[in-house]
Simulated scan of single mutants.
Amino acid sequence: MLRRVIAIFEPFVLALLATVLLATLLPARGAGVPWFEAITDAAIVLLFFLHGAKLSREAILDGARNWRLHLAVFAVTFGLFPLLGLGIASIPRLDPGLAAGMLFLTLLPSTVQSSIAFTAIARGNVAAAVCSASFSNLIGILLTPALVALLMAGAGDGPGISLKSVESIALQLLLPFVAGHLARPLIGGFVGRHKKMVGIVDRSSILLVVYTAFSAAVVEGLWSRVSGMTLLLVLLLCCALLAVILCATWGLGRALGFARADAIVLLFCGSKKSLASGVPMAGVLFPPAQIGGILLPLMLFHQIQLIACAIIARRYAAQPDEATVAPAN
């Protein structure tokens, strides 16, 4: 089962790398740029419309029940993560664009699909994982832009949110999400029966945003500003960030006395950051020339978190039910 879950993501990671390479060698230029931007905007609208249609009313209501667990996940996702991001962004000599990218990564909501998948592998509380991950993404649509406005105005090249950005958030993210959720009684069955199609839309939208963003960044000289040593530093920072968060969520689960199944939810939902939400949000919040550098840390963190959580989930799965909440050493 673990191999099947990992296999879901490996082709997409390769597709991301191929998209970055394509944007590096053949970036969108001239008259083609407005067309790519228009198609990308439409893809983002469709993506959040489908996300709204996927979220059931029952998941929203159930999410309020296990409030201690969900509050702990929320505190890590939108509290501890941003604090660590502020510390990383203040590191001297770190490229300003990548520093902004590291901070932006920490402001994002948790993933949904991989958090639930790894919780299931580890024999955790899957229902609670669905609620926590869904709530994180629902709240993140409003909270992530607010945190960007509050924390990124002075972080590297990160701008605050203008009136135009607020309008874009409402029109491209919030309105389609609400419309999709309201349309769920009509299209929810269709979306549920065609999960593969929805997955294709998810990934295609992300790839479009990545290509458009990196094209603009390459034209503006991204790779002349980012050295191999800088990339290595960002990779190490992503590894260190994930290690701290994994230790913190494990320790918090013990301190709060959570049952093993709930502690697993906190570990996996609290340690993730969503590429699926982060890429389109970056496309709305930041100027095209800045998005490439801002997305690099998120893309690296995405792959690192999948590898680390796959290993941890496998070790949890090998433990007997009466095992403690601590991962095996």
Rank of each mutant, 00 (worst) to 15 (best):
A7P: 00
I8L: 13
I8M: 03
F12L: 15
L16H: 00
A31S: 11
A42H: 03
L47R: 13
L47E: 05
L47Y: 13
A59G: 05
A59Q: 14
A64V: 13
R68I: 13
R68S: 14
R68V: 13
F74V: 10
F81D: 03
L98A: 02
L98Q: 08
P109D: 05
V112E: 00
A122F: 05
N125F: 08
A129M: 08
V130R: 02
A133M: 04
F135I: 12
F135A: 11
N137F: 01
I139L: 11
T144H: 05
I161C: 13
E167S: 12
Q172F: 05
G180Y: 08
G180A: 03
G180R: 03
L182S: 04
R184Y: 10
R184K: 14
I187M: 04
F190S: 03
F190W: 13
F190Y: 08
V191F: 01
S204K: 01
L207Y: 04
L208C: 07
L208D: 06
F214S: 00
G221T: 06
S224N: 14
T230G: 15
L231R: 11
L232M: 15
A240I: 13
L242M: 14
A243W: 10
C247F: 11
R254W: 12
A259Y: 09
D262A: 03
L267W: 01
C269H: 06
G270W: 06
A276S: 15
A282R: 04
A282F: 11
I291N: 08
I291S: 03
G293Y: 01
L300D: 09
I311K: 08
I311P: 02
I311D: 03
Y316L: 14
E322Y: 11
E322C: 10
A326H: 13
